[in-house]
Design a protein around this nucleic acid. Structure first.
Length: 355
RNA sequence: GGAGAGGUGGCAGAGUGGUCGAAUGCGGCGGUCUCGAAAACCGUUAUCCUCGCAAGGGGAUCAUAGGUUCGAAUCCUAUCCUCUCCGCCA
């Protein structure tokens, strides 16, 4: 969530960013509520200042054996007024929070402004797409033939979109996870994290999945008699790993903090049926090795670029032709200020495929 | 699931209704001493919000949320978390 102070001081910049992301939020109402809240807060605090000094007085007078009835009666009514003020302030805070949480991160200035994916820009390409002198099988056909994984078995034990890997397929999945983590740890200096795949609501808000993506996540109850929505299956390791630092201050000398970690990822993918759903293209549970860096704001863009390079290293080592795409503002996620996608050439479909 | 103990500043740890944002120690920072360092000594050292150009003022914060009270770290209620023991454990 953006700092309300930042919004207060840079309303035009926020409005501009919002429109670039194609999201509309009533900033003026937000600012009005914020001003109203601060005005009331000031009045409440003035009363509290009076009450605090009166309290000291009462203590002193009592010690000296003087009567305190009058001043206590006065303070009683002052306390009632304070309670009224604070109740109003509380209401306003809730309204403000509700609006503020729906404001996405703002795109950086070098992000192309676009409505959707049409603004995406290919930055660079690596490797040569392989040519085959015969009609090639796609990954699903290959997998079936080689017994690498089964969608049917997954449907049976869970439901559609939950692949089960067997033999070399299972080993490949496990090996890729180890390979990526080891590469990031040994070569790129990340610290390995093994985190829970279930997180609480505060974490989902922390990385901005809530409110916008709540419908796309698997919600769980925290206890037997509890309601669903206290816990969630994570859609990406970004959630647990980034939230490790939520509400904390990191010493500047400790920066950058670099984490990499594997987790399973769970996504309902509601409403996306029929679109690139063949085989493993879009499933409800998949495995991912994530990279997260906590860095100083000043060097943030450079750090992002080096992170992208670290990720590219994986594809290069695997000799997979890929391209780096800078997303346009309209195609970026809620929490992103700038985003690069890595897309691998998929020979069977002859398309670039986001990995 | 049951029983108990506990959650206070960067850390350890006092504080059980009133000048308590909080003793003391450690750590950090500055200084004295020293060629330099250590030791010793002296001083200093929480965060957030808000008003202010600033100096500075005010408010909030002792796990969290409520409550009692003129006044709460301190009393009451609920919740969360940590630790110890017992039980259960596909």
């Amino acid at each position: 969530m953006l700092d309300i102070r930042f919004i207060r001081e840079n309303p035009d910049q926020v409005a501009k960013g919002l429109s670039a992301k194609g999201i509309s939020v009533d900033i003026q109402t937000l600012l009005d509520l914020d001003l109203e809240k601060r005005t009331l807060l000031k009045q409440s605090e003035e009363l509290k200042a009076k009450r605090n000094s009166a309290s000291d007085n009462i203590a002193r007078l009592k010690k000296q054996g003087h009567p305190t009835d009058v001043i206590i009666a006065e303070m009683k009514s002052a306390s009632q007024k304070i309670a009224d003020f604070d109740a109003k302030v509380g209401e306003l805070s809730e309204k403000i929070e509700k609006i503020a949480i729906s404001i996405p991160n703002l795109p950086l200035s070098d992000v192309p402004v676009s409505k959707g994916a049409e603004g995406n820009k290919v930055i660079r390409t690596w490797g040569e797409p392989r040519k085959f002198g015969f009609k090639i099988k796609d990954h699903l056909e290959l997998a079936v033939k080689l017994g690498l994984f089964s969608m049917e078995k997954g449907s049976k034990i869970t439901g559609a979109g939950f692949p089960v890997y067997f033999g070399a397929g299972a080993k490949l999945e496990r090996a890729l996870i180890s390979f990526m983590i080891d590469l990031h740890v040994k070569k790129h200096g990340y610290t390995e994290v093994w985190a829970p795949a279930i997180v609480n609501r505060a974490s989902m808000r922390g990385t901005g999945q809530i409110p916008k993506m709540e419908e796309d996540m698997y919600a769980l109850a925290a206890g037997e008699s509890e309601e669903k929505g206290a816990y969630f299956l994570i859609p990406t390791a970004e959630v647990p790993i980034t939230n490790l630092m939520r509400d904390e201050t990191i010493e500047e000398k400790d920066l950058p903090v670099k984490y990499t970690g594997y987790t399973p990822c769970f996504r309902k993918e509601a409403g996306s049926y029929g679109k690139d759903t063949r085989g493993l293209s879009r499933v409800h549970q998949f495995d991912k090795v994530e990279m997260v860096k906590f860095v100083k704001p000043e060097g943030s863009e450079k750090e992002l670029e080096s992170l992208v390079k670290d990720a590219e290293d994986v594809l290069q080592a695997l000799e997979l032709p890929y391209r780096v795409v800078l997303l346009g503002s309209g195609d970026m996620s809620f929490a992103a200020a700038k985003c690069f996608d890595l897309e691998v050439w998929a020979p069977a479909t002859e398309k670039w495929f986001e990995v």
